[in-house]
Measured scan of single mutants.
Amino acid sequence: MSRESDVEAQQSHGSSACSQPHGSVTQSQGSSSQSQGISSSSTSTMPNSSQSSHSSSGTLSSLETVSTQELYSIPEDQEPEDQEPEEPTPAPWARLWALQDGFANLECVNDNYWFGRDKSCEYCFDEPLLKRTDKYRTYSKKHFRIFREVGPKNSYIAYIEDHSGNGTFVNTELVGKGKRRPLNNNSEIALSLSRNKVFVFFDLTVDDQSVYPKALRDEYIMSKTLGSGACGEVKLAFERKTCKKVAIKIISKRKFAIGSAREADPALNVETEIEILKKLNHPCIIKIKNFFDAEDYYIVLELMEGGELFDKVVGNKRLKEATCKLYFYQMLLAVQYLHENGIIHRDLKPENVLLSSQEEDCLIKITDFGHSKILGETSLMRTLCGTPTYLAPEVLVSVGTAGYNRAVDCWSLGVILFICLSGYPPFSEHRTQVSLKDQITSGKYNFIPEVWAEVSEKALDLVKKLLVVDPKARFTTEEALRHPWLQDEDMKRKFQDLLSEENESTALPQVL
């Protein structure tokens, strides 16, 4: 008996699950189920560990084997000379395990699969056993689809999209007709009724959600790893209520002995410091949205989908001078704002400069500016000194954290500008005749005249004003913003236009 009217009423009120309206889709043409990776026989039982391990490696599972009696060998002398080797079968990115008779397991190899009674669906509900069930008529011709799209860092995100009359449910929550939600590992998919569980979705590319604290899981769906560094790992996640993407940084307390840091400095109150950081608001710094204190720290951040500045300059790639100017102007505005709010970044580098898009002209935002507030000064500097390429001379020669101030950030900005303009770092371990530390503390950077011949004198002058060993003589952010190279009204107008595109209400910060 159909429950279409009941569920449609529920759909009209929406769902609290991570779902959002989605535009129309072009329906895929039908194809045989076997060619799409559906096993030839149905099963109602969950797999054992041996079955799972075989399939996850990209080899055929026991459900897909063919009797050897149906095959015969071709003698080598009868092999056609022009026969080309077969292409290897792509490894599946996800697996659906059937929970009921009449449904088959599915190895997801393609990027898009339609499910329903219509014969054009890649996964067609046409098993005779299924057709005899009382629920068969409640399934729509095109009930739902599972697909994946390219996300940040060229990774993939799996989604389920509801197109049914009676509802598609993920972990008992209604997706909603015309809406989608991301699928995470071990999600249970039910059709027409929330208790009519048909599939379990296994994402073969992500970790299980159960490793994360419950308070975090209640608000966010964790997904793929976006990156990792000395101070922690960053994962893509989704807000459950809105389906908006965020980035979540995970900082290990054990790695940084944060408990010991608190004992050594009783004034170090991470929760208080995070609340201060959350109040920071500038178009060129990453917004801190939320914070969870569990076995590790979880910092929920605004997501930038254009990648890191590092990706644009790695491998001796240089940027156009006009692009360097647009990016560097924004970096200076961001660091100036942090300094005005009493925050020294201490870890400025291309990896911590994020881009809003893949376009050459785009907004940038500074991230990882609050680590000293979370990890403690000593722990952070011990970590950073392991990779000193961007560290100021006074940091390398000081004991502990004494003896330096916000000028350290201006040195790091000078190193970043040098790399963007030239395509190579000013200080490098590859210069074996002088140690990296000695290069930095003496201010002897690697200047290649033929490379810098293409760079304007004004740009080079600003680099020199920032890479000054004496912090008292080094340019401040205010002085850098007043430098002739940055007195470019076309560049500032472009920045204002980019801000307006992102948010019509965002105004250009005042600069002296």
Rank of each mutant, 00 (worst) to 15 (best):
Arg3Lys: 07
Arg3Gln: 12
Glu4Ala: 08
Ser5Trp: 14
Ser5Gly: 15
Ser5His: 06
Glu8Asp: 10
Glu8Ser: 07
Glu8Trp: 05
Ala9Val: 09
Gln10His: 07
Gln10Ile: 09
Ser12Arg: 11
Ser12Trp: 11
His13Ala: 08
His13Lys: 13
Ala17Ile: 06
Cys18Met: 09
Ser19Pro: 06
Gln20Trp: 06
Gln20Arg: 08
His22Leu: 08
His22Glu: 07
His22Pro: 11
Ser24Lys: 05
Val25Lys: 11
Thr26Cys: 14
Ser31Leu: 08
Ser31Glu: 12
Ser32Gln: 07
Ser33His: 13
Gln34Met: 11
Gln34Asp: 11
Gln34Glu: 12
Gln34Ile: 10
Ser35Lys: 12
Ser35Tyr: 07
Gln36Ser: 08
Gly37Met: 09
Ile38Tyr: 08
Ser39Arg: 10
Ser41Leu: 10
Ser42Pro: 09
Ser44Glu: 10
Thr45Leu: 11
Thr45Gln: 10
Met46Thr: 12
Met46Ala: 05
Ser49Trp: 13
Ser50Thr: 02
Gln51Ala: 06
Ser52His: 10
Ser52Val: 06
Ser53Asp: 09
His54Ala: 14
Ser56Gly: 05
Ser61Cys: 06
Glu64Asp: 03
Val66Gly: 09
Thr68Arg: 03
Glu70Cys: 07
Glu70Gly: 03
Leu71Thr: 15
Ile74Phe: 15
Ile74Val: 07
Pro75Lys: 03
Asp77Val: 06
Asp77His: 08
Gln78Phe: 13
Gln78Trp: 14
Glu79Ala: 12
Glu79Asp: 15
Glu79Thr: 14
Glu79His: 13
Glu79Phe: 14
Pro80Val: 13
Glu81Trp: 14
Glu81Asp: 08
Asp82Arg: 07
Pro85Phe: 08
Pro88Arg: 09
Pro90Lys: 06
Pro90Gln: 07
Pro92Trp: 12
Pro92His: 15
Arg95Val: 00
Arg95Gly: 04
Leu96Thr: 04
Trp97Ile: 03
Leu99Trp: 06
Leu99Cys: 15
Asp101Tyr: 14
Phe103Cys: 03
Ala104Thr: 10
Ala104Phe: 09
Asn105Ala: 08
Leu106Cys: 10
Leu106Asp: 00
Cys108Ser: 02
Val109Leu: 12
Val109Arg: 11
Asp111Ser: 11
Asp111Val: 14
Asn112Lys: 13
Tyr113Pro: 01
Phe115Leu: 08
Gly116Arg: 03
Gly116Val: 00
Arg117Ala: 00
Ser120Thr: 09
Glu122Thr: 08
Glu122Leu: 15
Asp126Met: 12
Asp126Cys: 15
Asp126Pro: 06
Glu127Trp: 11
Pro128Met: 06
Leu129Ile: 11
Lys131Ser: 07
Thr133Met: 08
Asp134Glu: 07
Asp134Ser: 14
Asp134Asn: 11
Asp134Val: 12
Tyr136Cys: 04
Tyr139Asp: 01
Ser140Pro: 00
Ser140Asp: 00
Ser140Thr: 07
His143Thr: 01
His143Met: 11
Phe144His: 05
Arg145Cys: 12
Arg145Ile: 06
Val150Trp: 01
Pro152Arg: 09
Pro152Val: 08
Lys153Pro: 02
Lys153Phe: 03
Asn154Lys: 15
Asn154Phe: 12
Ser155Asp: 03
Ile160Glu: 01
Glu161Val: 15
Asp162Cys: 12
Ser164Glu: 00
Gly165Val: 08
Asn166Gly: 05
Gly167Leu: 00
Phe169Pro: 00
Phe169Trp: 08
Asn171Arg: 10
Asn171Gly: 08
Glu173Gly: 15
Val175Asn: 01
Val175Pro: 00
Val175Arg: 02
Gly176Cys: 01
Gly176Asn: 00
Lys177Glu: 06
Lys177Asn: 14
Gly178His: 11
Arg180Gly: 11
Pro182Gly: 02
Asn184Glu: 04
Asn186Cys: 03
Asn186Ile: 06
Asn186Met: 06
Arg195Val: 00
Asn196Lys: 13
Lys197Leu: 03
Phe199Trp: 00
Val200Asp: 06
Val200Ala: 13
Phe201Gly: 02
Asp203Val: 07
Leu204Thr: 01
Leu204Lys: 00
Val206Ala: 03
Asp207Leu: 02
Asp207Ala: 02
Asp208Leu: 12
Asp208Gly: 02
Asp208Ala: 13
Ser210Leu: 14
Val211Ala: 13
Val211Ile: 13
Tyr212Asp: 04
Lys214Asn: 07
Ala215Val: 04
Leu216Arg: 01
Leu216Val: 06
Tyr220Trp: 05
Ile221Cys: 02
Ile221His: 01
Ile221Arg: 03
Met222Leu: 13
Met222Cys: 06
Thr225Ala: 08
Thr225His: 11
Leu226Gln: 03
Glu233Phe: 05
Glu233Ala: 13
Glu233Ile: 06
Val234Pro: 00
Leu236Met: 06
Leu236Arg: 05
Ala237Glu: 15
Phe238Pro: 01
Phe238Tyr: 04
Glu239Ser: 04
Thr242Asp: 06
Cys243Met: 09
Lys244Trp: 06
Ala247Cys: 15
Ile248Asn: 01
Ile248Cys: 06
Ile248Lys: 00
Ile250Gly: 11
Ile251Glu: 05
Lys255Asp: 00
Phe256Trp: 10
Ala257Thr: 04
Ala257His: 01
Ile258Ala: 05
Ile258Tyr: 01
Ser260Phe: 15
Ser260Cys: 15
Ser260Gly: 12
Arg262Met: 04
Glu263Thr: 14
Pro266Leu: 14
Asn269His: 09
Glu271Met: 07
Glu271Ser: 12
Thr272Gln: 07
